[in-house]
Structures are given as C-alpha cells and as structure tokens.
C-alpha cells in the first residue's frame, strides 16, 4: 500500500483535531508545565513552527512532549503525534534530501523516516540530549544514510566478485562473517588503520566520528585515513 507524504500528514493532522485527542492533550497540559499556556494542539504547533520565539522555550516544550511520549497509553501516543507534527518541516527536508540522494523509493524513504523518528522519540535519553529537534533530525538522517551506504557497500562487494573467482567457498552469506574477513584482510595490509577504513568507507561514519571511536583527533583521523587509502591504491596497482 502506498501513501503520499502529504496524505500521511493530513491523516495525522486529522487525528490531532478530534475531541479524544484534545482530552489527551489536556492530560499532557496537566502534567507538563511548558505546555500549559497552549489551549489546543494547533496553538502549540503554531508556537513551535513560528520563526520568531525563543529557541530555548521551544526546546523546553519539546522536552515536555518527549517526556510525555515515553508514557504508555493514549497520552503517550498523543505526545508522539505532536512531536511528529512539530518535527514535520525537518522531516520533510530529510525526505527531499533522501530522494535527491536516491536512498530508496519514495515509499521506502517515507516508511524509514517515520519509523526511525518514532523510534528516536520513544528512545530519547532526556538526561543526555540537550537540543531535542536537532538531535532527533540529525540522528534520523545519519542513520538512514549509514544504512544506505552499508547496503550499497555490500552490493558493490558482491557484484565485483565473480563466484568462480572465489578461491575458497566458506558457504557463508552472513554479512557479519564477510565483514570479519574484510577486516582480517585489511589488517594484513593496513594494520591498525583497517578499522578506520571500514568505519568510513564501508559503514558510512565520518572521519571525525570514526576518530572519536579510535581515540584520534579529527586531523589525525583524516591523515591516517588518507594514508591508508593511498596504501590500498598502491596495493591494487601492484595486483593489476
């Protein structure tokens, strides 16, 4: 079944305009201080979507909604719906960028964005996150692109290797085993930098992110990545 992006928003808006939703919204208002000034969902969304207004105040509202979204039942669903509507302009921009990057079909991207955003809202650690909207949107887009790059990396590895050229068939189609083999082979050539190359070139992390994991500064990670890829190019030239 295929749903147009704007139809999904219309459906969510419709569900947010019922009396039942208003009752749940009133329950959130009783519990969450920053939401109290807003009598209905429309007033709240207007305040969040206005270009004017304090970013700190908007963030406090989003913290309150995210906190309510962690609860069970209708109130949690109501808060989740409000969060989706609040983040919709950002989600819309992510969707456009994903379509432009050809990450998947329109339906796949829509499902991926909504699924990951829901997961991100429900699983948000409010003790660690400061800027709610920016964190959720950045994480959702990063995770979609990473997943796409991982899949594209696997596809290209598969398509470049003819089955007859594989010396030993270990019978594994398991991606984890393939990655372990790749890491082992790269270690022979690149030593400790093998993991850096896999994180960046295969898994789609930035050099800075991979550097943090390996305890390197961004500049050091960049230099070591350049050196490692140069060694790979040299090795490939020797083969050819």
């Amino acid at each position: 079944m295929s749903f147009a992006w704007h139809e999904i928003r219309d459906q969510i808006m419709h569900s947010a305009s019922t009396l039942n939703f208003q009752r749940c919204f009133d329950a959130i208002r009783r519990e969450q201080g920053p939401v109290v000034p807003f009598r209905d969902p429309a007033a709240l969304l207007d305040a969040l979507h206005q270009k004017v207004g304090s970013p700190d105040q908007k963030n406090l509202i989003l913290v309150a909604l995210a906190s309510a979204a962690h609860s069970d039942g209708h109130t949690g669903d109501c808060a989740l719906t409000l969060m989706l509507l609040a983040l919709w302009p950002g989600l819309d921009a992510i969707r456009r960028r994903c379509i432009w990057r050809k990450v998947g079909t329109s339906d796949e991207i829509t499902a991926d964005i909504l699924g990951r955003t829901t997961e991100a809202i429900r699983g948000l650690d409010l003790q660690r996150v400061n800027w709610i909207a920016a964190t959720i949107l950045r994480n959702v887009e990063r995770d979609i692109l990473r997943a796409h790059q991982r899949e594209a990396g696997r596809q290209s590895l598969r398509s470049e290797t003819e089955p007859d050229e594989v010396a030993v068939d270990d019978g594994s189609g398991d991606a984890a085993i393939s990655e372990a083999q790749l890491l082992r082979d790269l270690r022979l050539l690149l030593g400790a930098d093998a993991i850096l190359v896999i994180r960046v070139a295969v898994e789609g992390f930035s050099q800075a992110e991979a550097g943090v994991e390996l305890g390197l500064s961004e500049a050091a990670a960049r230099k070591r990545y350049q050196r490692a890829t140069q060694r790979l190019r040299d090795a490939l030239q020797k083969i050819h």
Binding site: S17, T18, L19, Q22, R23, A42
Partner: peptide, 10 residues
Amino acid sequence: LSPTDLKRIP
C-alpha cells in the same frame, strides 16, 4: 458520542 468521531472546527 465517541470522542474520536468529533472533529474540531478551526
């Protein structure tokens, strides 16, 4: 009346 059947008039 079910609260889900009633829609807000803007």
